[in-house]
């Protein structure tokens, strides 16, 4: 029954998976561009941000079309509205990635004032959170979604460490200030990515339990 509708829903699953993979790659690449001072990669990330924006638009219009035609209710309604919310978060994550790439362009001709350690750690966790939240969504895995929400605390912790470390560097030598602020920004972007991944998980929980998140 409702074979066409089922097909549309399956398509949405695939599309959101594709978009998720694109976004995860952006997170990875932005940090690589930073640490390896790879300006080409950074430029590529910035240029490709538009693809992700388009992807968001495409999925959004699919969702609206399904709402219009199929009058989804119950789990279908929750699924569609979660998708609509999740793609917004994914798009924002990609924006943060592009922002990181932009900063890495400024930093590409400078020496780092400190070894970049916390940033890749944060990026790893944030990227993992995005991946797991999407996995939770696609597989309907409630415990995985809750796990992602827990993971956000570690990102926050790392950000605080990073902040404190940068403050020390500035106290040591005020000339470090400019670069320290740039690095702090990158940290903040990664911390935001964690928050977005947390949001995604909240929508997964809504999809699975009907509990509206208080974001």
């Amino acid at each position: 029954m409702r074979e066409n509708f089922e097909k549309e829903l399956k398509n949405l699953h695939l599309e959101i998976e594709t978009m998720g993979n694109m976004v995860i790659k952006v997170i990875d690449n932005s940090v690589i561009a930073l640490t390896k001072k790879n300006t080409d990669l950074a430029k590529k990330i910035i240029a490709e941000d538009i693809d992700i924006n388009n992807m968001e638009k495409k999925i959004e219009s699919h969702c609206l079309n399904i709402i219009l035609r199929e009058n989804p209710v119950a789990s279908d309604l929750r699924f569609i509205s979660s998708v609509l919310k999740i793609i917004t978060d994914l798009e924002r994550i990609a924006d943060q990635g592009a922002d990181i790439a932009e900063i890495s362009l400024y930093l590409s001709d400078e020496d780092f004032i400190t070894p970049i350690v916390k940033i890749p750690q944060m990026a790893n966790i944030a990227q993992d959170m995005v991946r797991k939240s999407l996995e939770a969504f696609i597989n309907g895995d409630l415990s995985l979604a809750t796990e992602v929400i827990e993971m956000d605390n570690r990102v926050d912790e790392l950000f605080h460490c990073l902040k404190n470390h940068l403050i020390e560097l500035i106290i040591e030598n005020p000339k470090n200030g400019t670069q320290a602020l740039d690095i702090l920004m990158i940290g903040k972007y990664l911390e935001r990515i964690g928050d977005h991944a947390e949001n995604i998980s909240e929508w997964v929980i809504y999809f699975l339990t009907g509990k509206v998140p208080n974001i």
Binding site: M1, R2, V73, A74, D76, G210
Partner: peptide, 19 residues
């Protein structure tokens, strides 16, 4: 009932996955 039905039979009926 139409956003989060408690019973699976309700869910199946209202989402058109009935029988």
């Amino acid at each position: 009932l139409f956003t989060f039905p408690e019973n699976e039979k309700t869910e199946n009926y209202i989402t058109g996955r009935f029988g």
